[in-house]
Design a protein around this nucleic acid. Structure first.
Lengths: 335, 335
DNA sequence: CCTAAAAAAGAAAGCGTTTTACCAATTTGT
DNA sequence: ACAAATTGGTAAAACGCTTTCTTTTTTAGG
């Protein structure tokens, strides 16, 4: 069947220790035997078993990634970026969609632990960090991705949502908008932070955001439709809307069109996330892009750090998002 | 550190064999000792190492999933469905995005082999099945998902693309369309099959699809735009367009609007895949839905079958897609 | 040519399980 | 009451590798 290190050793006329050394390029072995062994390995199509290696204390070169739902384009992007960065460092990823259920999250963590993954990246907004504490006690490196909580002692890598909201607000102000509304995911931390950023930008111009202009909605098509209609029906309609996610923004654009409200002529829209939706709306959606590849890169880097030397205290890395200008915001100046 | 079976055995005053048996619920052990051991396990928070178990010949309960790009919503859906079905059976998945590069595909297969995954699901359209043959020779169960080739001897689970194309064509015909165009991914097998299905449906009414009405495009925004424009500029414009994917259809709708062509009044559109795009276009996109959850379920089931008894000959399972009616096709009858 | 040091290779223990073969202690049948 | 059968449990080998400690071989210096 599958050849083992013994077969190779025997055929090459050396000990398994020697073979192991040439495989891992450790210890001292003469070029001659090195060559010989390498040849035999090819001949036999020998591939060392990571499983056996892991048992001796080596890493598994596998990291677990917990996301709420990979079929959501935003998390798909994240998974993709994480996978990419991980691969560059020689790691594979085990994907876990928790479906926002903390029970499933629990189960997956258990499985990952048993599989002896080298680390876990958590991008689910769990309500319950007791499980994380448990993992932490078990000394398995964790990294919180795009989520944060003062209680976390592990590494945290997030987008600076406040700044993102601020950027959006600042941009609208620069374009002459004074009367803006927001459709916010207020049940999520990131949603609240984005709102906070918007408020701060308006504050710069001494504008107070009226509570009536803050509409709550999850990032789901149905809810977003309702939220959009609320705004469109406002008697004193704002000149611009900041949507907490691109999906919400995309839905808003559609609803606006149905209501015969032109984007951006009658009302401007700005989104958040720069997912594929932003490119497919008409007009193209101006939005705040999360630096996902950078986030992923930092995340993997930090995680590998704490794999190398455990118990190093957790850093918090916050990357600034960036505004991507398309065509959904109208310039109100010099008109 | 992490407690081992030895700690448990010692504390419970039994042998490790006994502990192993209660863990796996094998062999004979009295309820008394079973209870005792279980208690100790909880007390110590003992979790058996899958790695060690795998080394003794047990399965790893991990399957590899190769997709071209998980950030593509279609593959994200697939990954999600596969993960779901796998989890139900106690398996986890290692996600591998190959980025359409067969080199990367190769690397990943190598890694998966070394990690001793129990099976591999391949959803990448590789140009080169020699690698698959290699895997096959190594006796690792493979399953081709949504791709097919006469050369494959492993299990294959796909959508019936011909039927999908037929369904689309039939629907358009029923709505009175006689002059239809297609934007097809002719560089992909599935694209060609969908086209074939369309042709067959037209044939039923003795309509020959003019070659000039077949526009080639990949499922990318830029290419789709060009393709859309070609169709919109046709002097004798068709009454309906069948797009090989929802993304292409979505782009077409946008381009049509820009050209002041109303959907579905001036021209009807039908897509394929029923991804999130179909819900976000305006009007909603009528499209052919692949039965992804069912496909995934069959795929996992078949794969587990061939894990249980290897060398069973590969079946080909083809599931029929379904038409999802929204608002992008106009009824030309009785007008 | 001999010895000491350096280099190369090997023996063996260990990693945490599973599993087979085996043994002791009960039960059972007669 | 005694052999046979059943039950509950154990010792030990095996899985495929890494790594430390030794041993052997080679090289260099005098």
């Amino acid at each position: 069947m599958k050849p083992t290190i013994y077969e190779v050793a025997k055929k090459a006329g050396v000990s398994i220790a020697t073979v192991s050394k040439v495989v891992n390029n450790t210890g001292r072995i003469s070029d001659k035997t090195k060559k010989k062994v390498t040849e035999i390995m090819h001949e036999l199509e020998y591939h060392p078993s990571s499983v056996a290696a892991a048992l001796t204390g080596k890493q598994t070169f596998t990291i677990g990634v917990l996301v709420p739902d990979i079929s959501n384009p935003f998390f798909a992007e994240i998974a993709r970026a994480l996978e990419n960065s991980a691969r560059e460092k020689g790691y594979g990823i085990i994907l876990c969609s928790t479906d926002y259920q903390s029970e499933r999250e629990n189960d997956y963590l258990e499985v990952l632990f048993k599989k002896q993954v080298d680390g876990i990246i958590i991008a689910t907004e769990s309500s319950d960090w007791k499980v994380f504490e448990k993992m932490h006690r078990r000394n398995i490196p964790l990294l919180m991705f795009s989520i944060d909580h003062p209680a976390f002692s592990s590494h945290v890598v997030t987008t600076d949502d406040v700044r993102g909201g601020y950027l959006a607000g600042r941009y609208l102000l620069d374009k002459g908008h004074r009367h803006v509304a927001m459709i916010a995911e207020i049940d999520r931390v990131s949603g609240r932070l984005r709102l906070e950023g918007l408020k701060q930008s308006l504050m710069d111009e001494e504008i107070m955001l009226d509570e009536g202009l803050i509409i709550s909605s999850k990032s789901k098509i149905d809810e977003a439709k309702v939220a959009a209609q609320k705004i469109l029906k406002l008697e004193n309609r704002p000149t611009a809307v900041f949507a907490s996610t691109d999906l919400i923004a995309a839905v808003f654009i559609n609803e606006a069109r149905k209501a015969n409200v032109s984007i951006p002529n009658d009302i401007s829209v700005i989104g958040f996330d720069n997912t594929i939706h932003a490119e497919l709306t008409d007009p193209g959606l101006t939005t705040i892009a999360q630096p996902i590849p950078d986030l992923a890169c930092y995340a993997i880097h930090q995680l590998l750090q704490s794999i190398e030397k455990p118990n190093s205290s957790g850093h918090r890395i916050m990357l600034s998002p960036e505004l991507i200008e398309r065509a959904s915001v109208k310039d109100l100046n010099n008109m």
